[in-house]
């Protein structure tokens, strides 16, 4: 089958559209994860998703619903929590990460939740998206774009020098927590699109590549978005052509771009 024949099929159309939208927008939050040192937090959120998945199953719902709820809750709580206790986000991340994985295992045992069903969360696929998933991806993408459009200078200030931002009167804390929340939602979307183990391919790697090649925030954002689309849509098409697993192919394309960027030194 050629690519054009594939793209006649609704499932592939939906997947392709989701790849373009998610790749172009979710990747814009990679720079947030790097700038605000959220690398540990994103791990914590993934582990909380696992706990959420277990709770979801125990309550008779689906693992994904539970996982999404946990991520939303986690990303809303982690920022303010770390400020209240004056702990850095790394420690808070580690606390939640270890704690939630332990709780999840207790739940597996006590509630008789089949662990394998929950671990299924780690292998999402863009081909399994339904129409409402696609709307969720488009909605989130819109919110991300709008946030950057309305708050570009404020976000630039928060990344460049949070102390300056605060004294100039920029609501730095609220912006940080808002971005963390969006990053959490994006992790949820990425789990569905590429699976939890490969979320970095969609969120972090395009931004890391862009940051190696850019001279300013605007360039980082434009390049992240382009690379995100190229990674997600390109990976999807290649996986169809060569009959390879989509999540892994998307990831390989992203890693390939990062590798290429390493050949250029600014």
């Amino acid at each position: 089958m050629s690519i054009w024949e594939y793209l006649q099929i609704p499932v592939f159309q939906r997947a392709f559209l989701a790849a373009v939208v998610a790749g172009g927008t979710v990747s814009l939050l990679g720079v947030v994860i790097v700038m605000l040192n959220l690398t540990t937090i994103r791990f914590a959120l993934m582990h909380m998703a696992l706990l959420g998945g277990a709770v979801g199953l125990a309550l008779g719902s689906t693992p994904l619903a539970g996982a999404t709820a946990a991520i939303v809750l986690g990303s809303l709580l982690l920022g303010p929590f770390s400020e209240r206790l004056r702990l850095d986000t790394g420690i808070i991340g580690a606390f939640f990460m270890t704690g939630s994985i332990a709780l999840a295992f207790v739940l597996f045992y006590k509630a008789g939740v089949p662990a394998l069903d929950v671990f299924g969360l780690f292998t999402g696929s863009i081909l399994s998206l339904n129409q409402s998933d696609l709307w969720a991806v488009i909605g989130l993408g819109g919110v991300i774009l709008l946030s950057y459009m309305c708050l570009f200078r404020e976000i630039q200030l928060v990344f460049y020098d949070p102390e300056q931002a605060e004294w100039l009167g920029v609501p730095a804390r609220r912006i940080k927590n808002g971005l963390l929340f969006l990053a959490g939602l994006s992790i949820g979307v990425a789990m569905k699109v590429v699976g939890a183990l490969l979320i970095d391919a969609l969120i972090l790697i395009p931004a890391m590549t862009a940051m190696r090649l850019s001279r300013g925030l605007l360039q980082i954002l434009l390049l992240s978005s382009l690379l995100g689309v190229a990674t997600a849509a390109g990976g999807l098409l290649i996986s169809m052509l060569l009959d390879m697993p989509t999540g892994a192919t998307i990831t390989l394309v992203g890693v390939g771009f990062l590798g290429l960027s390493m050949l250029f030194r600014r």
Binding site: M35, Q156, Y160, M211, G216, L217
Partner: peptide
């Protein structure tokens, strides 16, 4: 501040 953040900025 030393101003050496991570963000590239002119």
């Amino acid at each position: 501040s030393q101003g050496k953040g991570k963000l590239p900025i002119s």
